[in-house]
Design a protein around this nucleic acid. Structure first.
Lengths: 240, 240
DNA sequence: GAGTGGTCTAGACCACCAA
DNA sequence: TGGTGGTCTAGACCACTCA
């Protein structure tokens, strides 16, 4: 999949740090060794370690704090409350978000889900449905599918305990940090059940947001389909 | 607007290079002085200039080519044909894109447009409408608004000459490079005129894409509203 | 004051490119 | 062959944090 070839030293060091992250050597929020320590233990100069950590920091895998150290990135310290959720109230208000769980069941992966999550077809999955509301108004109907094995402890009770903050739950309960996500956006009309769940008329235009989230090493761990009502909210995207 | 304060040397150098870009000292595609030359003329070390250029490169303002030099980024060398247009065929095919101009007129900025483009209300603007088609099927209805002064030469003929590649035209004809853009996405239903233009039924869900594009120094230069038919295409977004 | 990340320097060698 | 960016080193000083 990757092209090994000759890699600059700093990339080898970056890979080495990533491997130790995958191995769970440092949990989210914990400090990694200082640049000097890493440099000494690896037998390279501090500047080289620095460049490796620079890249990890620019990918939000790690967070630097001057005078304190470098820490494994945590979902909770993301800028906004909602890491990947870029939905913003069009009038600029910052409403609280409420989570209502519709279901949380075990099932088997369909061909499509299996491909997305890079698991065998028919393997066990967890299938979650919920509605997210801003200020009492339903705004998002989410369906979330997880591979069952790494997420064994997931239950309706646990999700409610985290008030629907899924990524925070993954991180603190399963030790799984999401590092990257890919989204496909389309516009769709609300069909019967969806319209009912969101309390809108059938055919209401919705922003469909299909997302695959990846953990360290680009391993897909979550598939999600969000149907968003965008009458009072919009999805913000910065390009450069 | 910005906080001057004390800036690291490399940021001051970055600002200095940006200023010279704004001044038009180097046109898109032209090489900027080598790291050694800049370092010598500014009286700093090569590593410091390097860090300044690193940031400009990571913002796609400048492109490095090993063994050749560093060049002002050009729209034409963007990865895909369509720099900011992230619409992809759902079946993975890469269809050619056709551009049909509906209108290109002079007008006055409304309050909303004036705010978005940071110009005075009522100042002269250019108002363009067009339909983009993939493989003969209309997919996007675009409305593009530009401040008239910097884009004085824009005409229907000129746009057709560039087959609708607006950003390439801005760059080669007006010397204006877009560096950054902010998009707001929502789902809407096609109203009468829109439905006609795209050849779909009224009420068909469309992905509404409102975009402001910025040139050097974060100056807004283009407002755009794209209404996209997403039955066979989707908008791709990578998060990290 | 000790330790951390942040900046800056000076110089070395490498990989790549063009003439 | 000479010039460019890419990597790596070694060491200096600064700004911040915390005991």
């Amino acid at each position: 999949m990757t092209t090994p070839k000759f890699q600059p030293l700093y990339r080898q060091i970056k890979a080495l740090i990533t491997d130790r992250l995958i191995a769970g050597e440092w949990v989210p929020g914990a400090p990694i060794p200082s640049e000097m320590d890493l440099a000494a233990s690896l037998g390279v100069s501090q500047g080289t370690v620095r460049k490796a950590i620079d890249e990890l920091a620019s990918e939000n895998i790690v967070v630097r704090r001057q005078g304190k150290g470098t820490f494994v990135a945590t979902y909770s310290e993301e800028r906004a409350k909602l890491r990947f959720l870029r939905l913003t109230a069009s009038d600029g208000s910052a409403e609280a978000l409420e989570n209502r769980l519709l279901s949380c069941e075990r099932g088997k992966a369909t061909a499509q889900i299996a491909r997305m999550l890079d698991v065998a077809r028919g393997s066990s999955i967890i299938d979650i449905s919920r509605v997210l509301s801003f200020a009492g108004t339903p705004v998002i109907l989410d369906r979330i599918v997880l591979p069952a094995a790494p997420f064994a402890g997931v239950s309706a009770e646990l999700i409610n305990e985290y008030s629907g903050s899924m990524y925070r739950m993954y991180e603190t309960r399963m030790g799984i940090s999401m590092v990257r996500a890919e989204e496909h956006l389309t516009a769709v009309g609300a069909d019967g059940p969806v319209a009912t769940a969101l309390g809108v008329a059938e055919g209401t235009p919705l922003l469909s947001n299909e997302r695959v989230a990846y953990t360290y090493g680009d391993k897909p761990m979550e598939w999600r389909l969000g149907l968003c009502l965008t009458t009072a909210h919009h999805y913000v995207n910065l390009l450069d």
